[in-house]
Each structure stands twice: as C-alpha cells, then as structure tokens.
Amino acid sequence: MTDEQLKWKTLSSEYLFKDTWLTARKDRCERADGKIIDPYYVFEFPEWVTAFAVTEDDKILMVKQYRHALGEVGIELPGGCVDETDATFEDAIRRELLEETGFAFESVHALGRTSANPSTNSNLMHMFVATGGKKIQGQNLDDNEEIEVLEYSFEELFQLLDEKRIVQAMHITTIFYALRYLDKLNFKP
C-alpha cells in the first residue's frame, strides 16, 4: 500500500476541551477501504523544543524539576513549548535555553523531530544540540517553574544513563541523536 492509501480522511471533528496546555478533540474518520473509525480521540499540544546543551568547557547542562503527573523530581534536558513570538524552532530553543539556564550558545544544530505518541498527540518535539554555551544571565522562569540547573561531564552523563536516572523518553532520544552527532557513541561489533 502507498502512504496515501494508508491515510485516513477526517469526516468531522468536535472539540471536547480547550485550554492553554491541553486541547482534546473527537474525530470521525474514514479509512481508504471505507471503514469508519468513530470516535478517534486526539490531544493537541503546542510544538516542543529541547536541546542537548554543551558549555564552552565541555559540560552538559541538565535541569532538575518536579513533574507532577509522575509525582517525581526528574533530571531532563532544557526545553519547552514554542511560543507565538518564536520565528523558528531554533529561535524557540535559544530562548528556552536562555530562560531556563541563563546560557547562550555559539552554535545550535537541528537533530530532527520526535513524537511522544503519534497515535494520540498531534505535536512534535524538535531536537537540537547546542554547543559553546556561556552563562550570560540568571534564569528567567515562568511562574509555575522551579528549575535547578545541573552541569555534568560526558562521563557523568553516561553514568546517569547507566543508572536509568533519566526517564523522559523524548529527552533520551535527543541525547542519543546528540551523542551520535558529536561522535561520542562507541558501538562495539
């Protein structure tokens, strides 16, 4: 089958809930073979950005914060939602890095995109690697944010990964692509 033959046609959509951070809708869809799928629930979120951020002295910036849905404090990469004021995804990650860590970066390279769950979530997270970071200001956090900035060596990061201390799957994906881009992965045959 071609990609077009696999795509569904949306016959109708009904919004069930709309708020700043969550929008839920119920779709009625038709497959290419004529089968009707009703209801199909979709969660709409803003686009996200995250970065594997490396300082000019080769430290990896991570953030520690409470995540209420899990009820846990976690270690993650810096990042967040793309704002309407961001002209590009790169602008968004540069803004998020500055707000959350106070660091500005010489270089930002796009690594691609990933989805938390493409069967239910409509958005993507855009992954970056940022290098040459230099602290230029204090944090400028949103009202609901309490973020501790952590600095790790590459060796310490690998220890965190070995200990399974990073649970945010999309951030682990970003870490993988960044380590690959930076030629820090050594696969053994």
Rank of each mutant, 00 (worst) to 15 (best):
D3I: 14
D3F: 07
E4C: 00
K7C: 07
K7N: 06
W8Q: 10
T10E: 11
T10F: 00
Y15A: 02
T20L: 13
W21L: 04
L22N: 10
L22M: 10
T23K: 10
C29W: 03
E30I: 11
K35A: 13
I36K: 14
D38Q: 14
Y40R: 15
Y40A: 14
F43L: 15
E44S: 13
F45Y: 14
E47C: 06
V49E: 02
T50A: 10
F52K: 13
D57V: 09
D58Q: 12
L61V: 11
V63F: 04
V63R: 00
R67T: 09
H68Y: 12
V73P: 02
G74Q: 08
G80I: 08
E90K: 01
R94A: 05
R95W: 05
R95F: 01
R95L: 02
E96R: 11
E96K: 10
L98S: 06
L98A: 04
E99D: 14
E100D: 05
E100T: 10
T101Q: 04
A104M: 08
A104K: 09
E106Y: 07
V108S: 09
A110L: 04
A110M: 09
G112A: 05
T114M: 03
S115K: 13
A116I: 03
N117E: 05
P118V: 11
F128P: 02
V129W: 02
G133Q: 11
K134F: 05
K135Q: 15
Q137G: 14
Q139Y: 13
Q139K: 15
N140C: 13
N140M: 12
D142A: 12
D143G: 07
D143K: 09
N144I: 05
E145P: 04
E148V: 13
Y152K: 13
F154P: 02
E156S: 06
E156F: 04
F158A: 01
D162S: 10
E163V: 02
K164P: 00
I166D: 06
I166Y: 05
A169F: 10
A169K: 13
T173S: 11
I175P: 01
F176A: 06
F176N: 06
F176D: 07
A178T: 05
L179K: 00
R180P: 00
Y181H: 15
L182D: 02
L182E: 10
D183H: 06
K184E: 07
K184P: 00
K184W: 07
L185H: 03
N186P: 00
P189W: 02
